[in-house]
């Protein structure tokens, strides 16, 4: 029996760029597009997308979250896939959207459908598209932080390491505790800044101890937390989203830096 392909040869991927990438780091969005196109996808970017609703969901504002979720569901239901360069937003759509519509069977059905085709970028490239990388190189010692949602809710651990392993010149130096939270946690980091700082400091001590010159992760929230604290502590370690390195788009400044800084 011939294996049946689970997806079209050139699937239409709706890029859910995430609010943080849209606003703070568009280059991650373009890196995602480059990677997805290289993997054979056709990209659409539904123009009505804004936020997945996770901040509201985690603040206990379920109705607000549902309203935002509805917008995402409507915007993306015609795509073959929904892909986001964030484990956290992808997990929100994949795991939590269906729960938001428990009492609305019709919306629940649509949420389930979008949920099933929602992926985090790197795991989508590896697990669904069997993407082999761009054969690019990167000269540097990097370390990698596993974002909590991607790791624990979506099981993303090996995929980013697989793709990093295919980049010539990239030397991965593992953290002693790559799976421990960096202390971002959405609104948590501003509601309890001191606790968040203590958690960030543990992460940064760990990053520094690796001797890596660049730290990567798959979630811009974690990356802004890590960059913000590293830079406040005066560390020269650069911070980038993993998609930038995978796409070979590392000419532009790292997070919280400019060409002059």
């Amino acid at each position: 029996m011939t294996p049946v392909s689970t997806h079209p040869a050139s699937p239409t991927v709706g890029l859910f760029v995430t609010c943080l990438v849209d606003l703070f780091r568009p280059s991650v969005g373009f890196a995602s597009v480059a990677l997805l196109e290289a993997a054979g996808c056709r990209i659409v970017v539904p123009p009505a997308q804004t936020c997945c609703g996770q901040p509201a969901y985690n603040a206990g504002a379920s109705e607000t979250a549902a309203e935002l979720a509805r917008n995402v569901i409507v915007s993306f239901e015609n795509c073959d896939y929904v892909v986001a360069p964030s484990g956290s937003c992808a997990a929100m759509i994949r795991l939590h959207y269906p729960r938001l519509f428990r009492d609305d069977p019709q919306m629940k059905f649509r949420a389930d459908a979008v949920s099933r085709k929602c992926w985090e970028l790197v795991s989508f490239l590896v697990d669904e598209m069997h993407f082999e990388g761009l054969l690019n190189d990167f000269d540097g010692d990097v370390t990698y932080h596993d974002g909590c949602s991607g790791l624990r809710e979506l099981g993303i651990r090996d995929q980013p390491r697989d793709l990093m392993g295919k980049i010539a010149g990239l030397d991965l130096r593992e953290l002693s505790a790559p799976d421990v939270c960096c202390g971002f946690g959405g609104a948590f980091c501003v509601k309890y800044p001191q606790i968040s700082q203590a958690m960030a400091d543990n992460k940064i001590d760990d990053i520094t101890a690796t001797g890596a010159d660049t730290v990567l992760a798959g979630d811009l929230g974690c990356l802004m937390q890590i960059a913000g604290r590293l830079q406040r502590r005066g560390s020269p370690v650069r911070v980038r989203h993993i998609a930038e390195v995978l796409a070979g788009m590392t000419d532009h400044p790292a997070i919280g830096e400019t060409k002059e800084s």
Partner: peptide, 15 residues
């Protein structure tokens, strides 16, 4: 900002 610098946006939104 009490304990972290705030990374400024790159400039221009993705959309």
């Amino acid at each position: 900002t009490v304990s972290r610098d705030f990374p400024a946006p790159e400039g221009g939104t993705f959309m």
